[in-house]
Nucleic acid binder design. Structure first.
Lengths: 236, 236, 236, 236
DNA sequence: GATGAATGAGAATTCATTCAT
DNA sequence: AATGAATGAATTCTCATTCAT
């Protein structure tokens, strides 16, 4: 499953230069069918239904959790009939996995585009932190789904979400490798460990924020502090 | 049938030095009623039943997840009748919360005892990291329950687990404050943010380890690297 | 997609002598509206659609049973859209009843024509047996539908199919009466009982054959033996 | 597992010599687990629940058909909770199959015992007819279930019911063979065909009777007439 | 007339919890 | 206290039918 290897310039999906990173994950017209998941063929033509269902799912899953949400609630929130859900997703489980994949995919694409514009590893690592927290600050519900909900179906996360997730971690690890090679980062730490720890720290911070009272700007401040500590800690 | 006895359960937990800190979290006859939780009156006697049930719950929850585990499965694993579970826990949910509290409680007590023996904040922070990962390496099932399962019941975690959990984070933050006051740690970072990030990093590392193939010693090595990076990052 | 055309469908049905009695039950442009059933107005035009749907229904009902067949499967087999079914039949139930009526009607018409050419009751009774089994041997799917499927909707069979079915039994009973009056058959048995028993015997034989491996010619041999026994049993 | 075979003196269920054969099939304490069906272990001890459910199922299935009956209706008729059904039968389907097997089993045992007391094949064949119709006259609901309902789940009947059913037909065919060997019956007809036809005739007569207005004694008279015709038809 | 995406009522089955023994 | 048979509320998913295009 591992992915942590090379891929210096995965390139793909340039989003131009810089700022609007947050809302980038919102609606998605890109490619509805990214990974190898057996997603149900969206028989529709114009079909904004699939996206409407996904958006509704983010909302209600965030509110009540995966197991605490009835399919009919997702349907109601999406403004479609219960049965319509099954025209686009084979099961409730697949709905969650699709949701996860769809969103992480967009984050990955966006992040890769962002990082390619930056000069060195430290700048990139700082950007990764800003991006992840920035994203979540912009989409609180999605943050909760990604950090909390996705863990509620272990079978699924292990089989489907994990690989997709691994790609994200790999991207971070790659930045660390780059920094080590350039002499910017100490070499006595495992890139994957750093990637994992960084993700965990970010996830944990976001979780605390998502579960607590959302203070505007809190995540941005947290991002700066975390980056400061992490980058100093990685100095050779 | 079955009496869930034996099973030495790889007691060890040796980390750095050599104290038997590990098994401290195991069986628990100590104080059955720790927090403010409305735990059911234990009606104890010789009552190892409660502990047998908790131990069984750790095992099966780790294997199948909270929602994927039937109460009857816990009962069978514990060698008691289904109904017996309800003599000790009000509900399946409360079983999970009790499990969490019971184990975290022991971790807290143990950690506080450990830290009080150490000279300064850096040493304490490093010990915190060793302890958390060391514990998990010794009890893989418990690791999975604490890192994964506990998130499967959002309502619960918000209402009960969070506070208990907060105490653990507070203990870590306290170490950071101590270090800042002593001039050992930089003062431009929030102690709680550091605590949170540290926990998140540890949790993430443990999760990866728990879900993957368990490599003996991996967590110990990870602990050292993470401590190295974190402590350097916190230098004034 | 698909237009359900071709399929010569083993037209033959030769039994005893040599009349083309068999294919008479096949496609039906004859009278679409036979009985008192509230069949939906056919809005015909060139309308082979209705017949295509009926033919498709025979096929899929025979394969999966009435309850085991989705309307959409009939539609696909017929090469029409799901909704189109409802332009010709009010419901799935009515589709089955129409199918039954349509086919039994043709059998009745055909049988009456056949019998009128025969000299006496014994000859006629023997012909009835030959016809029923001969028909089924030529159309295995139809045999299964008539013998098995039609019983899967008790409400229906009681309300609609039964009367239509009664007409068929009456025709047989009439032959018995004729034989009794002519002194060919014993008079101490109820004509209707004989008709019923004969039908049941034939049905049962056909069912066994339909459910088992179809051995060519088996039904024809069975017809002769059954007729031999029955006619001797009916001697005065 | 077979039961329908030889066993000249299966004994069990003796009803003495003659008349009250009907009610013999009613309640059943005999052997709850006859065939190779994966029937769920009846965890109960005294457990009349299983039989109560079967009896209730006969009643409601006869009234509304298999597909037309909700499991909750069976439960209500049996005076148990919905879930209780699943303590004794794995599924609604298995309930039907178990019902069929249980009843046919008892019929077989009873029939074998009855026949062994009779002197020759003609007497036995006549008794078979009397028994089958007599049974049904005594248990109208069971008659409907056996003749109509069992055909509503083709998959099932093919896999489970058919074999069990075959044993019954074999028993009849055996009588015919015996008659042929003794010179009582003509040898130019297939014993199995005769068995099948006889069963079909009886089934058909019973069905007509079950679906129509039940006239007391009608089946007994029918039995005599049918036997008269059949036995004469089988004369050498 | 045809289409097929959308609908939503309906039903089997599961499983946490209870309580008579 | 312990048991485990019984309970019945709860929920996913199916599929006949409709109707806007």
């Amino acid at each position: 499953m591992k992915v942590g290897s090379g891929k210096p310039e995965a390139s793909a999906l340039k989003v131009g230069s810089g700022k609007p990173e947050a809302s980038a994950l919102k609606v998605g017209s890109g490619k509805p069918e990214t990974s190898g998941l057996p997603t149900k063929p969206p028989r529709t033509r114009g079909g904004d239904k699939r996206e409407r269902i996904l958006a509704a799912a983010v909302k209600v899953f965030a509110k009540s959790g995966f197991h605490g949400t009835r399919v009919s609630e997702v349907a109601k929130a999406a403004g479609v009939a219960d049965g319509t859900i099954y025209l686009y997703f084979r099961s409730k489980d697949e709905l969650l996995v699709s949701l996860f994949e769809d969103r992480v995919d967009k984050l990955l694409v966006h992040m890769n585009a962002e990082l390619s514009n930056l000069p060195d590893a430290p700048a990139k690592l700082r950007r990764v932190i800003e991006l992840q927290l920035g994203l979540l600050e912009g989409e609180r519900d999605l943050a909760e789904v990604i950090t909390v909900i996705i863990r509620q179906s272990s079978k699924l996360i292990k089989e489907y979400a994990a690989p997709k997730f691994g790609a994200y971690l790999d991207a971070i690890a790659q930045v660390v490798v780059e920094g080590q090679n350039a002499g910017d980062f100490r070499k006595d730490v495992s890139p994957h460990l750093v990637a994992r720890a960084t993700y965990g720290a970010l996830d944990s911070i976001a979780l605390l924020w998502a579960l607590g009272r959302a203070e505007q700007g809190a995540l941005v401040r947290s991002a700066k502090q975390l980056a400061d500590v992490l980058l100093r800690g990685l100095l050779p």
